[in-house]
Design a protein around this nucleic acid. Structure first.
Lengths: 339, 339
DNA sequence: GTTCGTAATACTAGAATTGAGTATAAGGAG
DNA sequence: CTCCTTATACTCAATTCTAGTATTACGAAC
């Protein structure tokens, strides 16, 4: 069955070759948890670089998301809570060898409530899945303890990449992109430009993947910067997309709670957000923000033994999931009359 | 080549059938323009219902987006400016007949600067492409002249759908979903929940598509509500996704300018945003918002003959595209010291 | 050639939200 | 009992929003 009966004859790409020359579709998942104030992602370990959990799409399930869910559950024993489609990656210039086969990969972001002990290092189904701190792959993204040293080193390298541009125009473009992604005097560093930063490093040849794919726009001195662990194929790019999306989303949707245990302390919540955003937050203002939105309620219990005054325990008010207005209103909508 | 060499044996869906049982991938595009203060979408006209421009993916181009671009340009003569991937639709429960073949469809959102006269009604390449006011497909989304009558009618129907729920729990869930999507006393109607509203109407059988697919959860009285024009297959769902994304995006990224002519008046800009958002905006506050962000600059010219005092013409400051900080900062980040 | 409708632009009082703290309470360890 | 640590409560100034009003300047109708 062809979806657009009216123009099913039109193809993307010049319609030379017939039906489809060997196309395969993978699903891959960025599965995130927060354990002890550190952001974790589920990775598949092997002799080569780590990979994200992924597998071939088959026509078993009615919904793409449902398919991913049941497959992850079977393979890892994890029950995914929140699940969201990220992006479909299909650029054939990112393939290791320009094989005739195009691989589409549909990336998903999943949030799970807590790391279950039996997953850590388990090999159910022959898969060796481990929880990894995601800053292992993106050390430059963690600003909780101030600007990481690696960022300064990168900035130096990027400056050379800018200087190495072909013409003046290209040079200015590169400079603007770097300033946008990494910040500058007037532009603050923004936590959710994870993908932009990674793409820039890829283009500048500062990340092993781009050499492997054979397409850096510039070769840095010697292996100037291989910091941050590589992943298989374009998985790091998918992960960057996931982190960016999550960082963007916590700002206007109560998704953090998908990562919290059923009851938690305020500071615990704050640390979780900080872990994800890679930033430190202002304590009392964060508290006010959460309280003013009615996102949590007290369980009635307190937790002592955390080294200070005992904290009241909180739980997420599930109701708000269906109530919460977008919260990021920006346009000045007319409320009553007037123009 | 298999992307995850470490676990290439694992497939989504139980690994019964081999490689792939006939999978085809389409690209489809929601191409938006604003003409004379009305939001337009490019539709393919035929004897059946309208369709979105779409075509089979082939392995010609290195990038999915580039493929879509060149194909649309060839077919319609339109040069797409802004292009963004929307979502990959692959739910096989939305297919007209449960054929064995699964169709994935990767939706894109494109913004074009202005309706070129030669496209209106042109049939370049045998395609009959027309610009349609998008409220033709979603009449309930236009609140610029207050709450549309159709919304009140829908609310009545939805109330019955709620009442027809199986158990108490299902009933409450339905109610919460309706309140979330359509607003209520305490929850304001939110312009960007276009998809949620459409999905709800689909489930409640208030939209012809759901009967066609044979899966309404409830049959409304007689053809109670067939308002808003249908589209082919799930194209209206794709369009809803596109509108929702665009409405969400104009709030924190300067994308409207992609739809404006090179120079324009303030009120013109405001009307464009209003057309997209389906809402009226507060004039002076909108002006302040735009000005305070340095999004525009005066061209030096004025435009008379608009019925009132002549307006200074503006142009978009392209620089901000690379500068603008996210603008929707929400988290209370620590700026200096302190905790 | 004055008057009226409409649009453009300027200005503003008051409310609400934020940023950045300080002050106080209440455990546990030594 | 004193100190360290964390929790919770309050505060104050700066900024940004809301909802206006006021003024300027055309074009058209009379």
């Amino acid at each position: 069955m062809s979806v657009t009966s009216s123009n099913s004859g039109n193809s993307v790409g010049n319609g030379g070759n017939a039906a489809s020359d060997s196309l395969s579709v993978d699903l891959s998942a960025v599965i995130v948890a927060v354990t002890e104030d550190e952001p974790k992602v589920l990775a598949i370990r092997s002799d080569g670089p780590d990979a994200l959990p992924s597998g071939r799409l088959e026509s078993q399930h009615t919904t793409l998301g449902a398919g991913l869910r049941s497959w992850v559950e079977r393979q890892t024993g994890l029950s995914l809570g929140y699940l969201e489609q990220l992006y479909t990656f299909g650029d054939s210039d990112r393939l290791v060898h320009g094989s005739a086969q195009r691989v589409l990969s549909i990336g998903y972001l999943a949030l799970v409530r807590e790391v279950r002990a039996d997953v850590e290092g388990s090999r159910s189904g022959g898969i060796d899945a481990v929880w990894r701190d995601w800053y292992r792959y993106f050390p430059w993204e963690d600003w909780r303890r101030g600007k990481p040293a690696i960022v300064s080193r990168m900035e130096g390298q990027l400056k050379r990449w800018i200087a190495a541009a072909a013409g003046k125009e290209e040079r200015q473009l590169r400079e603007a992109r770097v300033r946008f992604a990494f910040g500058s005097r007037d532009i603050p560093w923004s936590d959710d430009r994870v993908l932009e930063r990674y793409e820039l490093l890829y283009e500048a040849g500062l990340v092993p993947e781009s050499h492997r794919d054979g397409r850096p726009t510039w070769a840095p001195p010697r292996e100037a910067l291989a910091e941050g662990q590589t992943m298989l194929a374009d998985h790091r790019r998918v992960l960057a997309t996931g982190i960016a999306r999550l960082r963007g989303k916590i700002k206007y949707r109560p998704v953090v709670f998908e990562l919290m245990p059923p009851s938690f302390r305020f500071l615990q919540l704050q640390h979780a957000v900080e872990a994800l955003a890679g930033l430190r937050l202002h304590k009392s203002n964060f508290r006010r923000l959460v309280e003013s939105q009615g996102l949590v309620e007290e369980t009635g219990e307190v937790e002592a033994g955390t080294g200070g005054r005992p904290a009241r325990l909180l739980r997420f008010r599930r109701e708000v999931l269906l109530d919460r207005p977008a919260l990021g209103r920006r346009l000045p909508v007319v409320r009553r009359n007037s123009a």
